[in-house]
Design a protein around this nucleic acid. Structure first.
Length: 832
DNA sequence: GTCCTTGTTTAG
DNA sequence: TAAACAAGGACC
């Protein structure tokens, strides 16, 4: 070895990211047998406190830290499962959204990949309850008695067994008496799915041997039958190699072959059983890519998008409802895949229906992975692994799909990019996936397309500022026209007494007409349940949630009052709890009441409701969609869930029952939201060429400015006007917002903590940027009182990182006050 | 965040 | 006197 040839000594220490809310990394020593094998992105098991957890290697080095290190326990994979860019991305997310990288990792890893341990207790092998001379108290005896019946118990069960919460002293005492021992039980979470298959033993699997076999089985009817059935499915005469693949045991059993006859053949060495690992993602259809043809307008939009992608700027693709954005996406995705790069297509939660997924699967087959909240954890792990090993090149997914281990993205598409479901509200990291996707694209040096029929005003502003490359597609697919929108004055109808329940005569007549023609109707009301308030007519008391500062919503068919914030349920009372009066009446209305009323008006029509309550389990959503698609349902009543991306040819009428409610919402984005919602749900009407759709919007204020602009489809006008207001009141896009929420079970303490933090913030980052200690619209949730501080930061000329770090320090400063130590303080960057 | 230790209050 | 409650730190 020459002097210049400094040997690169393999690292002996590793900085590990652990999925905990601690703002630092943890250094572990690498045991000699693992030295040289690890690299950044590997998943390892490490001891942490008294437990073990899963971590990701962030860095390898040679610097022994000041403290004593523990050793890495185990390496979980043969290759890194987190990509280097992904770690960069996680770091960005932690710093931008004011949380720890550990919290980001928690969100990143599907829980099936986070192996951890739980403590368990078992009897000490040398301990004998009968002969022990140790004095034992009652609690200790209880636990030992239990343990003599069970080999071990979870530490979590101990309090229940001995009847006190403070179990620690007893455990400690029992350990000292050498009566029990504690061990860590590792929970393996991911189990590959196995399939039982059968095949012929190798030496039988060719023609002459088989003929011999038939002879042998001549008198064994069952066995012969079984082999024949097998050969019917597996043609080994023409393709001998097929015997290796064998046949699913279930398939054979399904053909009236009994499990016992298979067993006999196995015993006699004629057949054999074996197991293979199979994918849970199972879609084995062969992709068919021959059928997309773009219209002229679509081709033009596509060309402009490609031009925009080349400019290095994000592309904002504004394509009106029904313009066929998906076809263009498919085309672009195909190109990126052919170039050998990965592609991510993000969709909001509720748009990820099989309608769109099936269509995509049709084009992309097995190289496509789906990442969705209704997917089980096991399935998520398989998608993750698919991305790591390259089987999955294209992911369609919700918000969290941008946390998958991509290392070579060539295109990101965020569809319906205005959607607020891209924002994670709880827990940390409280990220906005549409924005975060921009950073991800930047890190991968890849183009990104933000698609929407109703872009957010922030996005439009950025396009106007030339920060985005704007592409517009203003023509509906085929000859379909945009629906005709119409306002109906319900105060006038109320005066004239032509309302039926909450429906105007105009809407009722339109429904009758539409269904009469065999066409379909969607009714939109953005509130579920029956009625939001149950009120006493005599004393005016309404039924409030005991844990939250909200009225309980009446759910009629379950005969319950439910809190939509904490889930609290009460039986519907017969009389007022305050004055005893039996005159209780409802105020306001939700989807349930609308459904009931409409069914009374039209007893012969088939009416279905679609909201959170009717779509809770995995398939119910799909069942409703299918029924509606097949026109088994005339009228679909729903919340937000019906506004997104559904494509039904038969719908020609959409009714918005209460437009005013959307505009009353206490949020600076209320107008924008109302516009988006009405346009989106309206966009469900008339998507086929034959018939122009119709949208009826019920309101008390027909001259209301936003509604006027909505029916005139004057997006630009609304945008301009709204922008002026945002500028005046210092809201996005002119300012960045950070919302800080203070929570405490004691209202006084909460208020004081908020005032304290507010004062610190005012001093540190400037009074004019801090809008302090307000009581939010809903002032208590789950027995925690709430206060909010809003911080407004200029877009330009401010060191954002510095401001954020000051905010973090101010929070720490507040925690340091003894009185506020138990207060929760949550920072939400770019709140929605 | 969670675990665990230590100190203090509370109930019987 | 045991148990519940509260507070503080470390976690590598």
């Amino acid at each position: 070895m020459s002097l210049f040839d400094t040997p690169k000594s393999p690292a002996h220490y590793a900085d590990v990211i652990l999925p905990v809310a601690v703002p630092k990394l943890f250094t572990y020593e690498i045991p000699p047998n693992m030295v040289g094998f690890l690299s950044v992105g590997f998943r390892v098991i490490v001891p942490f406190g008294s437990k073990i957890t899963t971590g990701i290697i962030n860095k390898l080095h040679q610097n022994p830290p000041k403290y004593n290190t523990k050793f890495i326990d185990n390496i979980l994979d043969n290759e890194p499962i987190v990509s280097p860019v992904q770690i960069q991305f996680m770091r960005w997310m932690a710093s931008y959204y004011l949380c720890t990288i550990g919290e980001v990792l928690k969100a990143v890893l599907p829980s099936g990949m986070k192996i951890s341990s739980e403590s368990r207790v078992q009897l000490h092998p040398d301990f004998d309850l009968e002969t022990t001379e140790e004095p034992l108290n009652e609690r200790e005896q209880l636990l030992l008695a239990h343990l003599s019946q069970h080999p071990h118990v979870d530490m979590k069960e101990v309090p229940k067994i001995i009847g006190v919460k403070q179990y620690a002293p007893h455990i400690k005492s029992l350990i000292e008496k050498q009566a029990i021992i504690i061990f860590e039980h590792v929970k393996e979470k991911y189990n590959p799915k196995k399939e039982k298959r059968v095949r012929l033993k190798a030496h039988w699997a060719e023609e002459t041997a088989l003929n011999q076999l038939f002879g042998l089985l001549e008198k064994k009817q069952k066995g012969l039958e079984c082999v024949m059935r097998y050969l019917q499915s597996v043609n080994i005469f023409d393709h001998p190699e097929l015997n290796n693949v064998g046949l699913e045991k279930k398939a054979l059993v399904a053909q009236n072959v009994s499990a016992s006859s298979i067993k006999t053949l196995v015993k006699n060495q004629i057949m054999e059983e074996f197991e293979v690992q199979v994918s849970r993602l199972g879609r084995d259809q062969i992709p068919d890519r021959s059928t997309i043809t773009l219209t002229e307008a679509q081709e033009k939009a596509k060309a402009e998008i490609i031009e925009g992608m080349g400019s290095g700027k994000p592309v904002l693709f504004h394509g009106i409802t029904g313009s066929g954005k998906t076809e263009i996406y498919i085309d672009l995705i195909q190109q990126a895949l052919e170039a050998g790069t990965q592609v991510l297509l993000m969709l909001p939660e509720i748009a990820l229906t099989t309608q769109i997924v099936d269509r995509l699967a049709h084009y992309f087959g097995e190289q496509m992975g789906i990442y969705h909240s209704k997917y089980s954890d096991q399935e998520r792990v398989e998608v993750w692994n698919g991305v790591v090993n390259g089987q999955i090149q294209f992911v369609v997914g919700v918000r969290s799909s941008l946390l998958l281990p991509f290392d070579n993205l060539g295109l990101i598409i965020v569809d319906e990019s205005h959607e607020i479901s891209y924002k994670q509200h709880e827990p940390n990291p409280r990220y906005y996936a549409a924005d975060a996707a921009l950073i991800l694209a930047h890190l991968h040096h890849c183009p990104i397309i933000m698609g929407s029929a109703t872009p957010s005003f922030e996005q439009l502003f950025l396009a106007q500022e030339k920060k985005y490359h704007l592409v517009q597609l203003t023509e509906r697919f085929g000859d379909a026209q945009l629906p005709k929108m119409q306002l109906v004055d319900i105060s006038r109808e109320r005066k004239k007494k032509t309302m039926v329940g909450d429906y105007s005569s105009v809407l009722i007549n339109a429904i009758k007409e539409t269904v009469g023609k065999g066409e379909q109707v969607i009714i939109f009301q953005n509130r579920r349940g029956y009625a939001p308030i149950l009120i006493c007519e005599d004393c005016g008391t309404s039924h409030q949630c005991p844990n939250c500062a909200v009225s309980l919503t009446l759910h009629q068919h379950r005969n319950e009052l439910i809190c939509h914030y904490c889930g609290h349920q009460d039986k519907v009372p017969m009389d007022c709890f305050a004055c005893g009066s039996v005159k209780l009446s409802t105020q306001g209305f939700g989807t349930q009441k609308l459904e009931e009323d409409l069914q009374n008006i039209f007893p012969d029509y088939s009416i279905q409701r679609m909201d959170l309550d009717t779509t809770r389990n995995k398939n119910s959503y799909q069942v409703i969609i299918d029924d509606f698609e097949q026109q088994k349902i005339d009228i679909l009543i729903g919340t937000q869930i019906v506004t997104k991306g559904l494509d039904f040819g038969g719908v020609t009428l959409v009714g918005v029952v209460d437009a005013d409610r959307m505009l009353r919402f206490p949020d600076f984005r209320a107008n924008e939201r109302a516009y988006q919602m009405i346009t989106q749900v309206g966009g469900r009407a008339g998507r086929r060429a034959s018939q122009q759709g119709r949208v009826i919007i019920q309101t008390r204020q027909t001259d209301q400015d936003v509604l006027q602009k909505v029916i005139q489809q004057d997006f630009k006008g609304l945008f301009k006007q709204e922008l002026a207001e945002r500028l005046e009141f210092q809201y996005p896009p002119f300012r960045r917002l950070i919302k800080i929420t203070i929570k405490n079970p004691d209202e006084q303490v909460c208020q004081q903590a908020a005032l304290y933090l507010n004062a610190v913030l005012e001093e540190w980052i400037g009074k004019q940027r801090v809008l302090g200690a307000q009581t939010p619209y809903i002032s208590k949730i789950r027995n925690l009182f709430l206060r909010e501080i809003t911080i407004k930061i200029e877009r330009e000329g401010v060191d954002l990182k510095r401001v954020k770090s000051l905010i973090q320090q101010a929070v720490i400063e507040t925690y340091a006050q003894k009185a506020f130590a138990k207060t929760h303080i949550i920072s939400d960057v770019d709140p929605y």
